[in-house]
Simulated assay, not measured.
Amino acid sequence: MSASRFGGGGAKHRLMSEIQELSKEKWVNIDLVHDNILRWRLGLIVVNPDSAFNGGYFRAEMTFTDEYPYQPPSFRFLVPIYHPNVYPDGKLCISILHTPGEDLTSGEQASERWSPLQGVESVLRSVLLLLDDPEINSPANVDAGVMYRDDRAMYNKKAQDIVERSKNDIPDGFVMPTTLDPPPPPKSADDDPAFWAESDDEEFDFGGSDTGEDADLAEFDEDGEEEGISDDDDN
């Protein structure tokens, strides 16, 4: 099945299914930007007593194209996180978000990179794992990588400072989980026959905003103000 055959309607259909499943999870809080299914605003929650970032509520955004799931989404934190694999602009250095296929330059195998069998949940779980277990051999933030390796106590203190600041972003009325059930076994699109049984004639309309218009709004929040990173935050 080609990406062009799958089309924008197929991407929206797939994402509607995924957001419905993720809405049952306690470790992520999801809203759509301007009701656009191709733009997700997230609260990613760390519930792991062994994590330096335990208790954090980290605002992030994921964006998708009409070629999803054949092309990966993008992911970025909307607030600075001092972590070896997080760039200053909030983007991540993580294999699962890299385009499909083997990259001999990076040394990544095709199995480590994005594939259509991945999904939003697998990306978010990979991000949480990365927060807990950084890859310091190819850091996006060299200083954080060195501190993680040489001064773990100071690194953990900086992480907890970030966690405390992140709590200011918890929405009113949202109850933070303190424990989580073990995650279910990974489920791929192959397990859902309906995913691959799209009709050529079927059209989907989920009431999202026009994607072309949203592209111009990609750096703005719901109030029309530009998302930015304060100069006062950690680098």
Rank of each mutant, 00 (worst) to 15 (best):
T105D: 14
D133S: 07
D50P: 07
P116Q: 15
D31S: 13
N29G: 06
S51Q: 06
V142N: 09
L78T: 01
D35N: 11
D201W: 11
L104W: 12
T105G: 10
Q118P: 00
D169Y: 08
D190E: 15
D232M: 14
P84V: 15
V86P: 03
W40T: 02
G90H: 03
M16Y: 05
D233F: 05
P139R: 12
H98W: 01
A197T: 10
D234P: 00
V28W: 05
E18G: 04
A11W: 13
A110Y: 00
D190R: 15
Q160E: 10
E21W: 06
A197M: 12
V175I: 15
V46Q: 06
G207F: 12
I229L: 14
A60E: 02
G10Q: 05
G173W: 00
A3M: 14
R125G: 04
G43E: 00
N141Y: 08
F195D: 09
F53G: 06
D205E: 14
T63S: 04
S74W: 09
I170D: 08
E61W: 05
V142T: 11
A218Q: 15
L129W: 07
F195M: 11
L97E: 08
S106A: 09
G10Y: 01
N156S: 14
P186K: 03
I19S: 05
L42I: 04
E198A: 15
L15E: 06
E121C: 06
T105Q: 14
I37M: 10
I30D: 03
A218R: 13
A215S: 10
V163C: 03
D192H: 13
L129G: 07
V120H: 10
P139V: 14
S126A: 08
E222S: 08
H83C: 04
D181F: 11
W196E: 12
I45R: 04
P182I: 08
V146Q: 12
G43A: 00
S4V: 13
I19R: 06
S126N: 07
D221W: 01
D210Y: 08
